[in-house]
């Protein structure tokens, strides 16, 4: 057995201190230690995107970052981004468009889409599809997700005037 490592990080705005085994990846840390189970696990080898979280403001694969690597950094999960309200319009668009069925891919989809939307402008459908191309959804066939992201981009652009 190897020694655990002390880490201090911010998770959804709260400071968290923990002792973690170095092999524990961030998605497991969030789910098992902090019970933030909105971050899902679909493959643990970096392909499906279900584990997407934000690390220092940028999306990453939660299963490909070790919790020890996040020491001193700030992590945001779908729970945090929901509570802060920043995803509200995107979530509304997903709901209206039924852009989720089982919902397992959804947290990763939302955070991934939000990164594209944050760039501003109204991306075309091809750009949206391309940006979301690392996030697997078995249920929807993607079109409703693309629609919801597109709608949100339009609405935000209109709101910016």
């Amino acid at each position: 057995m190897t020694a655990t490592v002390s880490i201090t990080l911010t998770v959804n705005g709260e400071t968290v201190r923990a002792e973690v085994p170095p092999r524990m990846h961030l998605a497991d840390f969030l789910r098992e230690r902090l019970a933030l189970t909105g971050t899902h696990i679909g493959c643990e080898h970096g392909v499906c995107g279900a584990c997407t979280v934000r690390l220092d403001g940028e999306i990453v694969r939660g299963c490909l970052v070790l919790a020890v690597q996040a020491n001193g950094m700030s992590v945001e999960t779908v729970e945090g981004a929901s509570d802060s309200g920043e995803l509200q319009d995107l979530q509304d668009a997903f709901r209206e468009r039924n852009a989720l069925q089982c919902g397992y891919c959804t947290p990763g989809m939302l955070l991934t889409a939000q990164e594209l939307l944050a760039k501003g402008g109204v991306p075309d459908r091809e750009t949206i599809r391309e940006h979301m191309s690392g996030n697997y959804c078995r249920c929807t066939g993607y079109q409703a997700i693309v629609d919801a992201v597109e709608t949100t981009a339009r609405n935000r652009a209109a709101a910016r005037g």
Binding site: T52, I59, V60, L64, T112, L116, H131, G134
Partner: peptide, 9 residues
């Protein structure tokens, strides 16, 4: 190369 979340790391 890969996808945005992977390119971020």
């Amino acid at each position: 190369i890969a996808h945005p979340a992977i390119r971020n790391r």
